[in-house]
């Protein structure tokens, strides 16, 4: 770096090209910086598209050996990038929910003793049957997934009418 500024011995023509090169490089790098400045705005405007796309990438997950889950117990699994839970209720009904608390995105847990879904971060409570937000800060119910119990596992699919 230092030599570039120091040696006047470089021939005049070389000097010219060096100037031109520097100008082109500075212009190119300047464009990079401008792009970096525009990046937040691009990401801001593309948020809904990203959300739709990430939701669309996964529409079905099989929970292996899910059918062996005892009554009154729950099992965590990954639905795409999100944690989800499968609950086998005492009345033999099955419920699967995205376990991302709608408040600030912590992972909610099923508490079988109290028969509730509880988010420990800020104390949000959901109904384990419907995913409805019962008390605490959550603004919306948990997203429900469709459940199909088979011999090899439990197949969980995206509810086509629900929005993520």
């Amino acid at each position: 770096m230092k030599k570039e500024y120091n040696h006047k011995a470089v021939p005049t023509e070389g000097e010219m090209t060096r100037g031109a090169f520097l100008k082109a490089a500075a212009g190119g790098v300047g464009l990079c910086y401008a792009a970096a400045a525009g990046y937040p705005i691009y990401r801001y405007l593309s948020s809904p598209i990203e959300k739709v796309e990430s939701a669309a990438t996964v529409s079905e997950v099989t929970v292996p050996d899910g059918q062996k889950l005892a009554k009154g117990e729950a099992k965590m699994f990954k639905f795409g990038a999100k944690p989800a839970m499968l609950i086998h209720h005492q009345d033999d009904s099955w419920v699967a929910l995205i376990a991302v608390c709608t408040h600030l995105g912590c992972t909610a847990q099923y508490e079988s003793a109290k028969n509730r879904i509880f988010c420990a971060c800020h104390g949000g409570v959901y109904d384990p049957k419907t995913g409805g937000n019962v008390s605490g800060p959550p603004p919306r119910p948990l997203t429900r997934l469709e459940v199909k119990v088979t011999a090899d596992g439990v197949v969980v699919t995206q509810n086509p009418t629900a929005k993520t």
Binding site: P40, I41, R43, Y44, S46, S47, E50, K51, L104, P139
Partner: peptide, 16 residues
């Protein structure tokens, strides 16, 4: 709700 989404859901919404 829409401001909550801007602040907590949208990318860089908090920044804007």
């Amino acid at each position: 709700e829409s401001v909550r989404q801007i602040t907590y859901d949208m990318n860089f919404g908090w920044l804007i």
